[in-house]
Design a protein around this nucleic acid. Structure first.
Length: 685
DNA sequence: AGTTAACTCATTTTT
DNA sequence: TGAGTTAACT
């Protein structure tokens, strides 16, 4: 990337006054434009605290913050750089009272809400509850609440979902809790219905920047519009060709609407790519050229032609993995550099990773599979979070139920069911019901004592947590708490094996360290976190998904889904499993109307485009001639996207050179295996 | 209450 | 193929 901005980037950075849409092709330096624009705005006299940069993920926000700091130093700390949802939390903490929401409301994650939905719909079936969850999330992201959904329902099924949604909303509000979608939907309602609040927020920001604009859903767009009002200039940065989240509500309509809703909109295209060779961009351009164009773009390279894109036709999935391994080994030999982190294997669906994992393990190549369970989704961490949530918010019944069972304290389902009934009758939270004198009438003496004991414990801990400041004190407090409730013994008693219990306990340790650090040093250092109490920290945990990387990225091959690969890049990419049915993906139960089908394929094509544009120097697209589907082996057809790459015929045909290369690689590998320092197996064509 | 045995069913995932 | 969950035991 050059030191100076190119003309298009410059134009985007310097368009300060009005609404601006930056169509940033893959690898065209979009984060650079956003950070430079922040710097430019500050230079032009805007106070840092009056700038907001909104992203979709914590990771993107963290990267943006780091880059901004690199550019403008300490002033970056005053710029609001956060996710859409974190912004929603701010709005609700400040103005949620208007909706009956106390500032200490809880944020429920999808596990919690799934349980809640099972309650509301009286089912134990996960799949059914998940469908409701999906449907309700869709309604909320479209900007509808239960009442609106009910009014709009046209079938019995839709009415049913709307009714469950109604109950669900009532429960959430009784718990003083919100779900993730509420973090958009409720602020939107606030700004849309309360003029004074809307004006307050509109006055707060002098410029709003939005990253990955193509990923916004209807509710987010509405929220954005209310946030900027008529006067606040904004910069939306995105790429219609990289819109791959339609299935979770993102809509390109938001891009189509923008020039209509904001007639003075300045549209700037970034087409200069700084990442990939011309050969790779050629393939990318030709694939995406098969989609109808919203804003036509054509990426240009400045890195020279580069190696031709390879197509590997493989016997089956095992062979595909094997050849991927051989290719990586061969490339590593010839490139002279010895970094496994230069390689990525990308695929459509998670389960495809397995074959590659096996092959890599056999070849003793280190790898990492992207995704998987995040730290904060682990049972032990969620247990502890439940306690924290309960300290913050007494009305949080889901947290109450989880905390009271972690560890187990001889309170069974019976007791909890009775307590629940009792609480429901008096319309009070479980935690309050605990202290009622009439409790003894509904549960046994023993149970009542155990419940009250739990209540005392929580009350006591909450008070002490609120008074705990500083890293050292927080750490000591957390350790004492865990010892007090006997959490380590609880883990060991779970009969999952000693090693697992130890691993879980390690996680608990990490979690405590992390919490303690966030409490600041208590010495009044001028960092933002210095004056947070443990309870302050506890409130936002649900939004945090990743712990700071423990070790700086180790030297490993990446296995990743195409979705998870967005925004990343590698020198060498292998795009695997390019067969019809998988990429483009065709779901099993085929209720295929031609129209939705076409839209689906367009999104799959964008996914292919995202995959291709992750590669910097070399790209191979592989496909197995047969694959296992369900239990039988089926012959496949190569993905239509392979033909659409419009490669040189030589690359597409089963190419003797490819075979030869595989043989050479195999030879090189064996040589490397057998003798340690054997002459550095140079492979010459 | 806790553990095993059978059974089902398979995109993509962030907050 | 395997994971994850339910149902039926002990």
């Amino acid at each position: 990337m050059p030191v100076t901005l190119n003309p298009a980037q410059n134009e985007a950075v310097n368009h300060l006054r009005g609404p601006c849409l930056v169509l940033a092709g893959a690898g065209s330096g979009k984060t650079r434009v956003i950070t430079h624009k922040i710097a430019r705005l500050i230079q032009s006299g805007v106070e840092p605290r009056r700038l907001a940069a909104i992203t979709f993920t914590n990771k993107a926000a963290a990267e943006m913050r780091a880059r901004a700091r690199g550019l403008i130093g300490a002033r970056a700390a005053d710029v609001l750089i956060c996710t859409f949802h974190a912004l929603g939390v701010r709005v609700l903490r400040e103005d949620g009272a208007e909706l009956g929401l106390k500032p200490q409301f809880s944020i429920l994650d999808s596990d919690d809400t799934l349980g809640l939905l099972k309650d509301c719909g009286a089912t134990t079936d996960n799949a059914v509850a998940r469908q409701w969850q999906w449907a309700i999330s869709g309604l909320k992201s479209a900007g509808l609440n239960a009442t609106a959904a009910l009014a709009r329902a046209t079938s019995a099924g839709e009415r049913h979902v709307a009714q469950i949604m109604q109950r669900y909303e009532e429960r959430l509000s009784a718990y003083q809790s919100v779900d993730f979608d509420d973090l958009i939907a409720l602020p939107l309602r606030l700004l849309a219905q309360h003029d004074t609040i809307a004006r307050k927020w509109q006055g707060r920001f002098a410029h709003v920047l939005i990253d990955e604009y193509q990923d916004t859903n209807a509710a987010q767009y509405e929220l954005l519009k209310h946030l900027v009002g008529r006067a606040t200039p904004f910069t939306a940065v995105g790429d219609d060709d990289q819109s791959i989240y339609g299935w979770r509500g993102a809509t390109l309509d938001n891009l189509r609407c923008l020039p209509v809703d904001f007639p003075q909109l300045k549209v700037i295209k970034l087409e200069q790519n700084y990442r990939s060779t011309a050969a790779i961009l050629e393939a990318a351009n030709s694939v995406i050229g098969h989609n109808p164009k919203l804003f036509p773009k054509r990426l240009r390279s400045e890195l020279g032609a580069g190696e031709a894109v390879r197509v590997l036709a493989c016997d089956d999935e095992q062979n595909e993995a094997q050849r991927a391994v051989q290719r990586m080994q061969a490339l590593r030999q010839t490139s002279g550099k010895k970094a496994w982190r230069d390689f990525a294997v990308l695929y459509r669906a998670n389960h495809q990773a397995r074959v590659f994992e096996q092959a890599l393990r056999r070849a003793q190549i280190p790898y990492r599979v992207s995704g998987g369970q995040s730290f904060f989704e682990r049972a032990e961490i969620k247990d502890l979070c439940a306690w924290l949530r309960l300290w913050v918010n007494e009305s949080d019944d889901p947290a109450f139920l989880r905390a009271i069972a972690a560890p187990k304290r001889g309170i069974g389902h019976q007791t909890l069911a009775r307590l629940g009934e009792f609480a429901a009758q008096s319309r009070s939270p479980l935690f309050h019901a605990l202290f009622s004198h009439s409790l003894d009438a509904v549960v046994t003496r023993r149970a009542a004592d155990a419940l009250r004991e739990f209540g005392r414990e929580v009350t006591d801990l909450r008070q002490r947590a609120g008074a705990t400041h500083g890293v050292g004190a927080a750490r000591a407090f957390l350790a004492e708490w865990l010892a007090g409730i006997g959490y380590e013994q609880h883990l060991q008693g779970q009969a999952e094996g000693k090693a697992l219990a130890a691993a879980r306990w390690d996680n608990v340790g990490d979690f405590c360290d992390w919490m303690a650090e966030r409490c600041g040093d208590g010495a009044g250092a001028p960092t933002r976190r210095a004056d947070q109490s443990l309870l302050d920290v506890a409130q936002t945990i649900a939004l945090i998904t990743t712990l700071k990387e423990r070790e700086a990225d180790p030297d490993v091959v990446t296995l990743s889904t195409l979705h998870a690969a967005k925004g990343l890049e590698w020198p060498h990419v292998i795009l695997a499993g390019a067969v019809e049915g998988l990429l483009p993906f065709v779901p099993e139960g085929e209720d295929t109307s031609a129209a939705t089908d076409a839209l689906r394929v367009e999104e799959e094509r964008r996914l292919m485009y995202v995959g291709i544009t992750r590669a910097r120097l070399t790209l191979a697209v592989s496909w197995p001639r047969q694959r296992k589907k369900r239990r039988q082996i089926v012959t496949t057809r190569p993905s239509r996207f392979i033909a659409e790459m419009a490669l040189d015929q030589a690359a597409t045909r089963e190419d003797p050179r490819a075979r030869l290369q595989a043989l050479r690689a195999e030879f090189a590998r064996r040589a490397a295996d057998s003798e340690a320092p054997a002459s550095p197996a140079r492979v010459v064509p």
